[in-house]
Each structure stands twice: as C-alpha cells, then as structure tokens.
Write a protein that binds this DNA or RNA. Structure first.
Lengths: 338, 338
DNA sequence: CTGAAAGCGCTTACAG
DNA sequence: CTGAAAGCGCTTACAG
C-alpha cells in the first residue's frame, strides 16, 4: 500500500501539499492539484485510516463503536442494518460488540472500543444505572443510547414508546373479549421490560380488569424463558386465554411450547408479542405483534451520533418513535369470540 | 486517557521501559517492573490500539475485518456469534461489513477495512470469481473464506458439504414417498446454490426419479423470491407434493405463501429447508431442515485466521463440516403416507 | 501557494 | 538492564 510520501515523491511536491489536496484545502494551486491527483490515481493511493485516527482531529474516516446486548434478537439486527446503511453513506466503519447481557463482556468491549479511539458510541445500556456507559458520557465521549436510557444523566436517546405499545397490545386483546391476559416479561432489570409491564397494567386498569400477579411471570429475556414461562402459565389451574410476550425471543419460545402441546392459536390460547419480525407471516397463524421501527431507530441513532461528534455542545435529544400494532391472526377476531 | 509517556513519568523510567513491561519483555528488572505496574494501575492506563496498529508488527490487539453478504440471514448471525466469541477471547475486535450481495458495497467495505489496517479478513465471497477477494489474497493479506470458496486460487475455507446436505434432504423426502419434489434455489451465481442443486439432482437420479426442470425455480436468495416462487410452483398444473428450499430466507418466504393459501403442511405440501433456525420448533408444524453449524463455522474461521496471521506460510486448509438433518414435522411421516 | 517540522502513541534496534 | 532515537502515516500551525 502506498503512502502519502510515495504520492508526494511521484508528484514532486511535499507530503503537506498532498494532504491538502486530499482534504480539499482550497489554497492549493490548480496545476499542483492536478499533478497530485494524477499521482494518487496511478498509485491507487488511499489514505491510511489508522494514521488519520492517531491525529487528534479529523473530519472523515470515522469509526463507530456499537455495543449490542444480543445479536440473536432480530430487533437488534434491524437496528444494526439501519446504523450500517447510514454509516456506509458517511464513509464510516462500525466495530461491533455483542455483550450478551454480560457486564464483564460489556466492560471489556468498551475498553477495546475506547482504545481503538472510535469517534463515538452507539450503545444499548444493560440497565438504567449502567456505570460503564455513564462514565463514558461523563468523560465526554460522544454516545447515543438506543432502546434503553440512563438515569440521572443527560444523553441522546432513540427508542420507542414502550408503555404505549404494550397498552395498545393489551387493549387489542381486551376488545377481542380477553379478560384473563398473561404477561411473560423480560429480565426485570432492563428498563424496557418495566415500561412494557406498565403499559400492560395501565390497560387492564383502564378497562377495570383486576391485575393478577399470578399470571405475570418473568425470568430472562431469552428463548428458553419464553418456552418455560409459557408452560408455567398454561399449567395454571386457571390459565390465561391470551399471552402477551415481552419481546421477540420470548414470543418464539412461547410459540414452541404452544405448538408442542398441540394448542390452537387463537382458539385455545391467543398470543401477541412485543417486537415484530419480517417473517411474521411465515408463522402459522401469522403473528399479531407490536412493531418497533428497528431500522429507523438505527439510522436515527447514527445521525444523532454524527451530529454529536460535530457539535459536542448541542442539546441532548430524545427521540421516541411510535410503535405500530400489526394485527394478524394470533389473537382471533371479534366476530368469532362474540 | 493517559499515555505511555504519563506512565513513564510517574514511574520515573523511559517509555521504552514501560513498553517492555507491557509486552512482558523478560529483561526488565523486577523492581522496575513493579514500579511501572503501579503507575499503570494508578493511571488506569490502557494502550492505544490505534498507535499499536500503526507500527508494522504487533502481537496482540488485533482488529479483524468481517465481510458478510446478508446479516438478515440467521445463518450468518450464528457465524458472527462464533467469530465474535473467539475474537473476544483473543482480545480482538471485529469490524463488520454487510454488503447485501452488492458488489459496489463489497468493494467499498474492502477498501475501508484495508485502510483500517485490519490484521486479517473473514469473508463470504459474493461468488467464486470474486475479483476483489482474489486480489486481497494475492496481495498477501490473511484471509479465510466462509461458506463459499474461490476458484483458481488457494485460500483457507470453512464451509459445509452442501451437496451431501441437499442429498440427505431429498432422500428423506423420497423415503417418505414423495416423487414430485420442487426445488426453490437461491441466486445461481452463488456457489452454494449450485452445490445444493447438485445434491438435489443426485438424489433424484439415484432413486430413478426423472428431473423435471419445470419444478426447479430460481431467482434471488431472499424472502420475496421464496414467497413468489412457491406461489409459482403451487399454481402449476401438476404441482409438487414437496418443496426443498435452498436457504433460510427462501424457506420463510415459501412458508408465508403456503400459510396464506391455507394449505396444510405436510398433508397438502411438504417442505424441507436448507439452514436450520433456533426457533424451528416455533413454526407450526416444526420445520424439518438441514442444519449447518454456523457457530462452529465462525469459530473455526477465526481460529484459522489467527493461525494464518501468525504463520502466513502454513498450508491452506479446507474445513468441510457435515450438515445434520433435523427431522421435525414438515415432511410428514412414513406411516401416514403409506 | 508550498514546505519543513512537530507531534499523535506506540515499538524496537542500537548503544551503553 | 535501561534509555535515546527513529519511524509507522498522517495533519496542521508556522514560515516564507
């Protein structure tokens, strides 16, 4: 790979001049510029991003650090796609860290990313008090949070109105005459879990349905928990007629249990999930779900991050997207139940 | 963030010495080492990976470039997980490029990764002749290919026996008395597509079933193609009784069409897919599929890459994993059909 | 308009 | 056993 020096030699100018034309500094004379451009072309020169990054300031060639709790969750792959498309358009590369909801791993990745001098971070904090992320923000690194915010500290945030989304889901179920609605929540340390639970409770209250703690169950936010907690719910003496699952993975797990028992959806048990998937129609019956715009969330987060890098002093932004209730067939239809 | 210089000053030694203890150079005197260690601890010093990378040689702090055709495909997320876990254990970070089967984007990412001075590449070439990847190999960069090889050039490769996997799938169908088996293949420019097609044809031949080109259909390797091609197959005057789909996305798409038409699986139409997913049991009925060990593939690729970086001259390795036929319920059972 | 020089944070061959 | 110095490939303030 050729260097600035090589280009300079070939063009018969100094490295400073070459650097100037690369950074489109207006001062350089037209003829010089042409000579340099030609040299660049014949050497197929392209700047070394590592060297650029070692300098304190730079305008382009960014590297973005991404800290994701679980890459197996399709919601996050949508987010990643959004980030990546926008990054690509901005000549930025992204370093990815998947910490699997493991704080030790989160810390290690954070350290690696810091020492890679990334220009900024996009992270989903493991919880509201996440000290590592807080430290990052305090230390003045550009960071934007996705999906989950941070308490007691100002930070850019892009997420969804979880409470409203859950409320809509439960309301939908209620209008379909369900009154005994179970809720499989995610890990209760994760802020979104609590917001969705709040939406669930709010809907029940509003429609004067008593909240029964027996049918609100919780463990981790993963597939196995979904499967096991669904089994628990179905084994109850007075089982729910509908289940609201707190995320993608939980939904899929619950579905396994329901299928395994040969239960019919929605006749035997209705199900509505938080998080939509692009293959919701491949499920039988198609899944009714609360859709988060993952791609848009990623894209917006990347935009905010670039802004933040450019103007560290701009006010903190909090972008709350609306969810969309994707009504398909897993909750039944009004006619049927009436 | 503190630098080598800061540590050196605090410890009262030169930066060279600090660097030596960091790189556990045996020569440094015990007392000096202790002083330096303390300084490192009090300053919470951690080396700048960018500066390290700017130096030509280094032993740790690697950066790995990953070029993936489609992050929406669950197979690749398994691969990524495998890569990432092994990378993490080796203090390596991974920069990810998702090129969506778009050659322009592939080229751009490759350029970015090169100028980030990554220590090596793990890539799934867009096809066997992929000139960019070939160039990379010729230029002496450490690269290991996954899923798809390269023609006319020696390169480390980790993949699966696609032909055998497809053969097994078709044989399974045949033993279940299916004789009219449709095949929705992926993009025919992708090597794996052709290998799977070869397995399909081999099985039919071996069991003396005529190959009917009418029921071998192909477009892209994505969801929409799966949905549309399944519709095409089902609309045929003499439609197949079973469909073999060439990958994950194709399977999901076909499932949507089958569900939409209210067809029963496996009674009305049997389906077997290449690629398993962790939520295959959440499908109704559970999907019979050819499983590729994605996680292991990723892990192995990362191992090979590290070896390659350490000894660029070692012989080229070609690791072919076996697939596993995951028999569930989407193809019916022998008893039923007999 | 252009060049020489300093410096970003490291590592390592060379002296001593 | 340790330090001074060169150099990796850039950018930019300072001269001219």
């Amino acid at each position: 790979m050729s260097s600035l020096k090589n280009v300079a030699d070939l063009a018969g100018v100094s490295v400073a001049t070459v650097s100037r034309v690369l950074n489109s500094d207006e001062v350089v004379k037209y003829e010089t510029k042409v000579k340099v451009m030609n040299a660049i072309k014949t050497l197929k020169y392209s700047p070394n991003r590592v060297a650029q990054r070692l300098r304190t300031t730079r305008k382009s060639s960014r590297l973005i650090g991404l800290l994701i709790p679980d890459i197996q969750n399709p919601f996050y792959v949508d987010v990643i796609r959004g980030i990546e498309v926008f990054a690509y358009a901005n000549n930025a590369a992204v370093v990815i860290g998947n910490f699997s909801q493991d704080e030790k791993k989160e810390k290690l990745y954070l350290d690696i990313l810091k020492s890679e001098s990334v220009d900024g971070f996009i992270v989903a904090p493991s919880n509201e008090k996440d000290i590592y992320i807080k430290e990052l923000v305090k230390d003045g690194f550009p960071v934007v949070c996705i999906d989950r915010g941070l308490s007691d500290i100002e930070v850019d945030l892009v997420k969804v109105d979880n409470q409203k989304g859950a409320f809509n889901a439960i309301e939908h179920l209620i209008k379909l005459q369900h009154t005994r609605i179970g809720h499989i929540t995610g890990n209760q340390l994760i802020p979104t879990t609590m917001e969705r639970l709040a939406g669930y409770e709010q809907a029940l209250k509003q429609y004067n349905i008593a909240i029964d703690p027996e049918i609100i169950v919780s463990r981790e936010s993963d597939y196995e928990s979904g499967a096991e907690l669904a089994a628990y719910l179905l084994d109850l003496e007075n089982p729910p007629t509908a289940i609201f699952t707190g995320n993608n993975l939980l939904t899929l797990g619950a579905l396994e249990t329901i299928n395994k028992r040969g239960l019919k959806i929605p006749e035997d048990i209705a199900i509505i999930g938080f998080d939509d998937v692009y293959w919701a129609n491949s499920l039988n019956p198609p899944l009714t779900a609360v859709r988060q715009p993952g791609f848009e969330i990623g894209k917006r987060a990347m935009e905010l991050l670039i802004q933040r890098i450019l103007s560290p002093e701009r006010e903190v932004a909090s972008i709350i997207y609306k969810t969309e209730l994707m009504i398909r067939k897993s909750c039944g239809s009004k006619e049927k139940r009436l």
